[in-house]
Design a protein around this nucleic acid. Structure first.
Length: 181
DNA sequence: CCACGGTGGTAGA
DNA sequence: TCTACCACCGTGG
């Protein structure tokens, strides 16, 4: 997606605020976190050998540095299949009300538990909006920490994952979720 | 197993 | 507005 690439390469603002792209180191690779002064706005899976954040190592607000550290701890825990102790504030400023509702309910899914898209739709009191829930999951800018990987199809199949189904399988396996044969 | 249609939210024209 | 997408799902062959 072109918009994302532009942000990644130029560190242009997200939703009108300054943004810092910083590396989040984990045993599974270097993720990329994008922070505004409101909090963590995006988390991206490792890509290639490129290390994010190289060129903006200076001039990072102390608050943002602290959030980066918090994100790293939380992400390392989550990747091990543990419950993160604390998350940084999440910057959802660009999201629609529907997306916020879905993402808020995603955060209620505890480690190791899954729900189907239609169950999520019922939980947000829009029983016929399963497909829209899927779209909102796909638009989740903070995967893993906002656990959209815990939503699967009603028949037990995996469903999709914008970060690639290999990641979805890996994340669920770390949480010891039994997948359908 | 497959095909189909109902469906709600979103982005872009 | 209108339209074309979709990480869906239940029903009917």
């Amino acid at each position: 997606m072109a918009h994302f690439d532009r942000i990644m390469s130029t560190i242009s603002p997200i939703n009108g605020s300054d943004c810092w792209e910083l590396p989040i180191e984990t045993p599974l690779g270097v993720f990329s976190g994008q922070f505004t002064l409101r909090g963590l706005a995006r988390l991206a899976f490792p890509r290639g050998r490129r290390r994010p954040g190289r060129r903006i190592d200076t001039d990072i607000p102390a608050q943002v540095r602290q959030w980066r550290t918090l994100t790293e701890h939380a992400l390392r825990a989550a990747l091990k299949g543990a419950e993160p102790k604390q998350l940084p504030p999440l910057d959802w400023s660009g999201a629609t009300p529907f997306q916020r509702t879905v993402w808020t309910h995603l955060r209620k899914l505890r480690t190791g538990y899954t729900a189907s898209y239609s169950q999520m739709a019922r939980r947000i009191a829009r029983p016929r909006a399963a497909r829209a829930v899927g779209a909102a999951c796909g638009a989740n800018p903070i995967p893993v920490l906002v656990p959209c990987h815990r939503v699967r199809a009603a028949n037990g199949a995996l469903g999709g994952f914008s970060g690639g189904l290999d990641w979805k399988r890996k994340l669920l396996a770390a949480e010891r979720v039994q997948l359908a044969v």
